[in-house]
């Protein structure tokens, strides 16, 4: 069944507020790449939001944020996603914490499905480290959707899981769960 667009449960994005002047900061990845991002986009990450808040509280000038556990390519993807969603109503992410009724918007679906599985794993892992709820949910659901209906062999191939004889111990799973 096709996903229901804009279901009643899903909160509608708020009307765009009069945009304040963008506050741009530099973000450095673990491999030394420096990217620029709007602070409003970075606030989607709870981890970065806490860091920014710390700077603001101490009235320190925020010049560069270091993200030590994300490489440049993945960080670029994360920032691209955050930039797209910086105007979103926080109620959307809040409502989607309950994983039952997650609807992936078309832009996100396109953005995530075009990525190879390896990059998608990296992106979800980065989102997990940075604590970006929306990206984690959409990413995980995209991976789960791609795994749906696959047999064990197909799943091994899709996710790059070694064959049983390549593993230190083989599975002894039974159906009688």
């Amino acid at each position: 069944m096709a996903p229901k667009k804009n279901s009643a449960k899903r909160p509608q994005p708020s009307t765009p507020k009069p945009s304040a002047p963008a506050r741009i900061v530099k973000v450095q990845s673990s491999d030394g790449h420096i990217l620029q991002a709007d602070v409003r986009a970075l606030l989607l990450s709870s981890t970065l939001a806490a860091t920014i808040k710390g700077y603001d509280d101490e009235n320190k000038p925020l010049e560069k944020l270091e993200v030590n556990n994300v490489v440049g390519f993945t960080l670029k993807l994360v920032l691209e996603w955050c930039e797209k969603h910086k105007e979103d109503d926080p109620a959307i992410a809040q409502a989607e914490k309950d994983k039952k009724n997650i609807f992936i918007p078309s832009w996100d679906r396109h953005f995530l499905t075009k990525l190879p599985m390896g990059n998608l794993f990296d992106l979800i892992t980065a989102a997990y480290h940075l604590d970006i709820t929306g990206l984690i949910n959409y990413g995980c659901k995209t991976v789960a959707n791609s795994a749906k209906g696959k047999s064990t062999e197909e799943m091994r191939e899709l996710f790059g899981i070694p064959e049983p004889w390549e593993q230190p111990s083989t599975s002894t799973a039974t159906w009688d769960d």
């Binding site: 995980c140 749906k148 209906g149 047999s151 091994r156 593993q167 599975s171 799973a173």
Partner: peptide, 18 residues
């Protein structure tokens, strides 16, 4: 990710590795 899988996919995933 596993929380999003349906029952069939979970069973397949369960057999991938220990």
């Amino acid at each position: 990710i596993l929380e999003f899988l349906d029952y069939e996919s979970r069973c397949s995933m369960r057999l991938c590795s220990k």
